[in-house]
């Protein structure tokens, strides 16, 4: 299978008042078409920076990001983004929030078709009946569902998510993992998922990339060889437990601690 996302030798430093701050230092990630790449790493190591580079919002100092055979140098319409904060527009209804990207990407698409597409997605994530509500009338989990719909409404080839479930409670989070899994079965996209939850990375990822502490390198890549239609139960099986243990050890190394010591 061809690699839809290709990150090669990416280095990046922010210019700050106290001089350059190296954040990424030799990043290599490849994600085959249709696969889910979960990225974990210590806090502040440069994960959000990575998403901004893949989205074309920033250019790396060195190295290259390729999407679908084209080098990324600026934002492109085939990308969808979701953040920890759902950033819904308070003055729009849920339906009109989901439609927003279509207004940019497909300006000539008739309103009727936009509505049909948005309603189809809202139905998939269990938000039927909330189309006319304002974001302030929804719970945090529901807002995040709407935000996911907005991220994929224009059928992006790449979905970039920066800790989308980070602010939710445990039950809601597991609910959304399953929603994500179901969406994935119906909508073709390749995804990068930043997370700080190792169980989430194993449940949703086809590979888990562990980044080292800042400046971040690709430290370890775990192949998650579990079927794509997993249930939460797999997390309690031995195979997943072993993978979680490996990841836990790798994070300790990334944080500069000895995995044997604790």
């Amino acid at each position: 299978m061809k690699n839809l996302i290709e990150i090669k030798g990416v280095r990046h430093a922010y210019k700050t008042r106290t001089g350059p701050l190296p954040v990424l230092d030799g990043l290599d990630i490849s994600v085959p078409e249709g696969e889910f790449c979960a990225v974990v790493g210590p806090s502040g190591c440069g994960k959000s920076t990575l998403t901004r580079l893949v989205a074309g919002l920033m250019k790396p100092d060195e190295g290259e990001v390729w999407l679908d055979g084209k080098k990324v140098s600026s934002p492109r319409k085939t990308v969808g983004m979701a953040f920890q904060n759902p950033v819904l527009l308070e003055w729009r209804t849920i339906l009109d929030n989901v439609i927003l990207p279509l207004e940019i990407v497909a300006p000539s698409m008739p309103r009727r078709d936009r509505v049909v597409r948005a309603e189809e997605l809202l139905e998939m994530v269990g938000l039927s009946g909330f189309e006319g509500k304002r974001p302030s009338e929804l719970s945090g989990g529901m807002r995040q569902r709407a935000s996911l719909c907005r991220a994929i409404v224009h059928k992006p080839s790449v979905l970039i998510m920066d800790e989308p479930f980070g602010a939710l409670d445990n039950f809601t989070r597991e609910d959304l993992w399953q929603t994500m899994r179901d969406l994935r079965a119906k909508e073709p996209f390749t995804a990068v998922l930043i997370t700080h939850d190792l169980r989430e990375s194993v449940f949703l990822g086809d590979q888990v990339v562990v980044l080292s502490g800042r400046p971040a390198r690709t430290q370890y890549i775990l192949d998650v060889d579990l079927p794509q239609d997993r249930t939460i139960d797999v997390l309690y099986a031995q195979k997943a437990a072993d993978m979680l243990q490996t990841l836990r050890d790798q994070i300790k190394i990334a944080q500069g601690r000895d995995p044997e010591a604790a």
Binding site: G56, L57, S74, M81, F83, V87, W91, P101, I104, V105
Partner: peptide
């Protein structure tokens, strides 16, 4: 992030202003 949801789609500064910054 408000800016990025549209900027990541290649929207112009004016579009971002009209659709997000101004109403907000």
């Amino acid at each position: 992030e408000y800016r990025d949801i549209l900027r990541s789609l290649g929207a112009s500064r004016f579009t971002i202003f009209r659709k997000i910054a101004l109403p907000k």
